[in-house]
Design a protein around this nucleic acid. Structure first.
Lengths: 218, 218
DNA sequence: TACTTAGTGCCATAGAGTGGCACTAAGTTC
DNA sequence: GAACTTAGTGCCACTCTATGGCACTAAGTA
């Protein structure tokens, strides 16, 4: 059915293809189509449901000791692998999705479910932190954006070359942004820290005066 | 029509309400409905199209001198103000959207258009930077996530109190994360900076020694 | 042989969304 | 003032998605 659907979608277009056309070509009954795919759009994304379940399981099976951001990055890589497992199919689907608004919005809501899955995991990990929910949502959004950026770059190039190196670069950037953020805030609230920022050109007497005023009565 | 639709949606449910029901109650013709709203879902989000146009215009009318991240945060505030202009309507819509999957996915694709608008603006501003597109996508995703987090918190509380303070907090966190990221990379390469990190408990002689070693021959 | 159970196909139905046609009300041109 | 555009509206017919009910087959089971 998937093969038949794609053949028709790519030749005569998505809207121009009816369910009847597909089931005729695939030689199955009309109701069988809807038994496997909830809607016409779903035949274009047949493996997302399974991948989403994998991601949920992957995040659940952690020990709770892992670095949270690294964990969601690894979870995002599951989606990447699903695309990379079948490059030509992925590229065909990308071109189709790009040109059909209905498919695009369907894909967007699928992506949103991935993002919610990641965010819910992070919310659990950040439950103790102040602004934990906010940070969780932002990090999840960041990771998904990085993932999609790398994925789309690869898809635009026709599925040539290696995705994983570009994906690593993108996810690493996301990870760095949030690693720096956590160190700066987390440690800062436990114990007061004095940070002096100046240039080498500053005269020493001025540096010493700034230190004295920062330390106060000490 | 909007009032009639919401009255029916809230009493008997979204799926249980047909277009005929709405146009009967509103006393208009059936085709008039589709002349104003492309789909049944769109009657729930009547002002997003206008708001999206406002956001596009706001980002276009900039001089190009503004801090990019601050600019997209201000753009996000346009959406907030649209919700805040009519709190009771916003809360009704929130409860409706939360419970109807079809409306939820429709809202998600609307949010996606906002995110793309912000990302496209940032891509333009970061055109010269390495990884500009990637950073643009991630920042846009972050800002949207922060905005939605604050907005949903406010909507869950029933639209009570002031959104803008919570929104400021959320957007400021997003801004800080990306400001720190840029300073660390961009400014750090232009001029060497000495950063001294220590605690108040450290004895002064040790602080001075660390300063001397940091400044070296100076 | 009779009885479940999963999988399938066929049929009827509701309802979304599209397009065509006619009508009205307003302004416009001659 | 009469004929003519133009926007806005209502009505109607039609296509297609999606749902649900019913019957049939095949395979295993008592």
């Amino acid at each position: 059915m998937i093969a038949a659907a794609f053949e028709l979608f790519l030749t005569r277009g998505f809207e121009q293809t009816t369910i009847d056309d597909i089931v005729c070509l695939a030689d199955v009954g009309r109701s069988s189509f809807f038994r496997y795919f909830p809607s016409k759009e779903d035949v274009v994304f047949p493996d997302h449901e399974r991948c989403l379940a994998e991601m949920t399981a992957f995040l659940r099976e952690g020990t709770g000791e892992e670095e949270p951001v690294a964990r969601v990055c690894d979870a995002a890589r599951l989606v990447m692998r699903m695309y990379a497992a079948n490059p030509s199919f992925a590229v065909q689907r990308y071109r189709l999705t790009k040109s059909v608004p209905g498919l695009r919005s369907h894909e967007v809501s699928v992506v949103w479910r991935y993002e919610r899955t990641l965010a819910d995991y992070l919310r659990g990990r950040f439950a103790h932190q102040p602004d934990g929910d906010l940070r969780a949502d932002m990090i999840a959004a960041c990771v998904v954006a990085a993932h999609n950026n790398a994925l789309r770059t690869w898809l635009r190039s026709g599925g040539q070359g290696d995705i994983s190196t570009q994906m690593d670069r993108a996810l690493e950037l996301a990870q760095n942004v949030w690693r720096l953020g956590e160190e700066g805030e987390g440690a800062g609230q436990q114990e007061p820290v004095v940070v002096l920022v100046t240039t080498r050109k500053a005269p020493m007497w001025q540096v010493v005066r700034e230190i004295e005023s920062a330390f106060g009565e000490h």
